[in-house]
Design a protein around this nucleic acid. Structure first.
Lengths: 354, 354
DNA sequence: TTTTAATGCGTGCTCGAACACTTTTTTAAA
DNA sequence: TTTAAAAAAGTGTTCGAGCACGCATTAAAA
């Protein structure tokens, strides 16, 4: 059962024509008589022709300039991983002519985002990967890029009512449910459970709200509302301070506080507080494998982390663009990455170097 | 900062020689004067030449016949996933001339294994992927294949004192520790914890022993030996029966049995027992996302599953062979796959279709 | 009828690496 | 010094797809 690889030449021979004609049919370049086209199309189907991607990309040799609009990793180390993912993908795809230009903005400054987004437009890239953490500010650009015919892939933050090639990231709702499930597994006696949004502008972060929904709904659907009281709180503090004051107060108000779910990568702030106050019995779960979270995970103060796989987000984002632009594959509108559960014991396997 | 892609021709020009000579140097085909070779080598290093894999494989057009020696998925559905992984890898690598021939043996019959292993030798494949579940029976073949110069990759079962290109699978010890960690998180009051080896010939399965070690050592290292008593038991029963009798007896002996760790993919057997006897408070953790385990996971009877990623094992196994044979990459001797923790809430993301 | 344009179709070069084959140079033997 | 053999270096074809170019036929315009 040898599968012969079908070439354009084979099709041409069978259709008693030349490879040039077959090529014109394949690429809809016109200038082919209808009957010949039909015949060729039939043969292509019959022989199940698939273009040889290797020969294709050897020939075409064209450069694909991709742009990545992404926050500065020096200001928030969470963004290091997507950068690495980008680079990993670029390495793999360089053979196919892929080049990535990074446009790095300050994740705390919408004006810097806007400036960089404008730059992207001027560069006319063939495709764009973007972490749209500034929702409102990004909207007009989506329109602009669509008009320019630049396909863009969103990652990290899901946004409704725009038309990206694809969104890559987590299912925030499920992510919340998962966190709830794990904490609940570790909770014995009735108590209060806190959903903590740490240092985050909730109004502009729909996905954190969705996480909270998923979290709350888990307790509802499992009929645990009487056993566990779920409260939520935005915990904001300047850089020098910590969450101490606000958490002190919370504990006064809810002495039976037994678990905390931090909806972003700032679980280490809460962990530091728990450590300082020797609160060993409060379970803690958060997101992302940034260095400071890892420390507290290894100390056993953070019990679990959910990995949002930021490296994978960058990596797959670029790959989706390549699949679309180079390999002409169909792209699913949403690619949810797995919700990896991380503990001290399996942490290693999820750290960057593959 | 444009990176120009360096071609053989570029090297030849700079070395004032022809591409044929450069080619001979690159492939150690000899017939090149020493000084010229040195010069070319220096330039290759200087310009950081990397062969264009695309052009390379377009030209060479050589077929790589890989063999996979792997149990019949119809007899144990665990093996379906590796088969899928193989096929996925084959699809991706077909362009590069990779063809896989499967040699399927009966996982309950060492003679069938031996017969198929002999067949593999006769076929002289370019590379081999093997699940060496029959340790003793496999040993002489490893020697044979080594002599024939056939590189082989082991997966699923780690074996010492043979010299594979690579082992792909899990770190069994860590896997046990992880299971312990999770169960412990869900255990409140003191009790007995059971390590169950279900329907397995322990004497020939070193990795199950290793899992148990990892499990026990977790409780030791966390100084929980006084709180939790860890016992282990082989639970064997014919196909028609269930684990009922043996578990009944165990519960009589240890009335405070509060958690069970099943070291292979047979957690569903224990789950069926727990369901039948309405034992909601006994925590259960096991391995692998086979259908019947998934059912009990969704019912909440199995609390967690650890995914051994059998699909990934097949997939990466083939890829390692390809990396070695086609892309001439360095292969790590061991590739541990992540220890994925699975619950009802994140199950979807780990099921086959990517 | 002649000229021009439009359409249909085939030829041949290109991409980078591999390798067979040929040519040139060097070395050793006569 | 000539000649043959061996070593070194160069040339040209191939892989499959893409695409520019050009030739041939037919239709439309002059």
């Amino acid at each position: 059962m040898k599968k012969k690889i079908v070439r354009i030449k084979d099709i041409a021979e069978r259709a008693q024509t030349s490879k040039g004609t077959v090529d014109r049919v394949l690429h809809n370049r016109g200038r082919v008589a209808d009957d010949v086209r039909e015949r060729i199309l039939a043969i292509i189907k019959e022989l199940n022709y698939e273009p040889n991607l290797i020969a294709q990309s050897l020939k075409s040799q064209r450069a694909f300039n991709l742009a990545a609009l992404i926050p500065d990793p020096n200001l928030d180390s969470y963004w290091e991983a997507p950068h690495n993912g980008l680079e990993k993908a670029e390495k793999e795809l360089r053979q196919y002519g892929v080049r990535i230009t990074k446009f790095i903005f300050n994740s705390h400054s919408d004006t810097s985002f806007i400036a960089k987004a404008k730059e992207v437009g001027r560069e006319h890239p063939d495709g764009l990967l973007i972490a749209p953490i500034f929702y409102k500010e990004a909207l007009p650009f989506f329109k602009e890029w669509a008009e320019m015919g630049i396909p863009y892939v969103l990652f990290n933050t899901q946004i409704e009512h725009v038309n990206p090639l694809c969104y890559i990231g987590q299912d925030s709702y499920r992510s919340g449910s998962l966190a709830a499930k794990i904490l609940r597994f570790g909770l014995h006696s009735p108590g209060t459970v806190l959903v903590a949004h740490v240092n985050e502008d909730i109004s502009n972060s729909a996905h954190l709200i969705t996480k909270e929904e998923g979290f709350r709904d888990y307790f509802k659907s499992e009929q645990l509302e009487d056993t566990f009281k779920v409260i939520s709180k935005e915990i904001n503090f300047p850089d020098e301070e910590g969450p101490d004051k606000q958490l002190d107060e919370l504990r006064k108000q809810y002495p039976d506080l037994s678990a905390i779910y931090v909806t972003n990568s700032k679980a280490f702030e809460v962990a530091a507080y728990l450590e300082k106050n020797a609160l060993k019995d409060i379970k803690l779960i958060g997101y992302d494998l940034i260095g400071r979270n890892q420390q507290y995970l290894n100390k056993g103060i953070i019990d679990f982390l959910i990995n949002q796989n930021p490296l994978g987000q960058g990596y797959w984002g670029i790959h989706q663009l390549a699949n679309h632009l180079i390999f002409k594959k169909e792209i699913p509108a949403i690619k949810f990455l797995p919700l990896d559960i991380i503990t001290k014991e399996n942490l290693d396997y999820y750290l960057d170097p593959q």
